[in-house]
Amino acid sequence: MQEYVNITIDGAKISAIRGTSVLDTAMEYGICIPHLCHYPGLSDIGACRLCIVEHIVNGKAKVTASCTLNVAEGMVIRTDTDRIKRLRRNIAELLVAQAPNSRAIQDVAVRCGVKQVRYPFHNDNCVLCGRCVRVCAEMWQAKALGFVGRGKDRHVDFPFGRKPDFCKSCNTCIDICPMTITPCPGPMKTGEEYLCLACEGQLIMADSLPGACVWCDLGKGFQCARQVQAG
């Protein structure tokens, strides 16, 4: 038997299934919260911090990631305050400055309203969202990939750096990776990275984006949970 709790997201009264996350509930009800490391069916680790929301507790707004926050009776959530938009934009800016050579990341940047990048570009090919690590461990029970190192040295690798025989070569890690598709104009060379913004046409209103999901094409870019679930 599913139990329901009553929560409020952006003023909308929602009957949510106990045990689900705020992000899942919001997406289910068509409230758009940008996200990257979240993938339907995998556990949430709260790494990308794009899905931050304000959780109002005793009148105080606490910023927290919505993927790791489970719904509870009487919970009040705001997903689109000016502060949240600004913080989210800053995180997306950090991401796109680090890995501009990915359509997904460029789409996330547009979706979060990044207009300029204030840092010099790096051309990394991983943002450590951990989708590959989790899908390998949780869906295929293979654990052929894992995080290695700490802090700035953290990266994804096979155990001891060699492809193990328990890797099933299923390629799900590649399918699920947000970094595999380059921006539409083609790959960017090191030193020539730029903020793409080409998709802005699809979301003219990036600043005054509706709280409701409009099934935007950007979602396809970063494998938005709603698009994935709809099949």
Binding site: I45, G46, A47, C48, L50, N90, I91, F147, G151, K152
Partner: peptide, 9 residues
């Protein structure tokens, strides 16, 4: 630890 974006990047 490098897990979350705002801290690491």
């Amino acid at each position: 630890c490098g897990k979350c974006v705002p801290c690491r990047l």
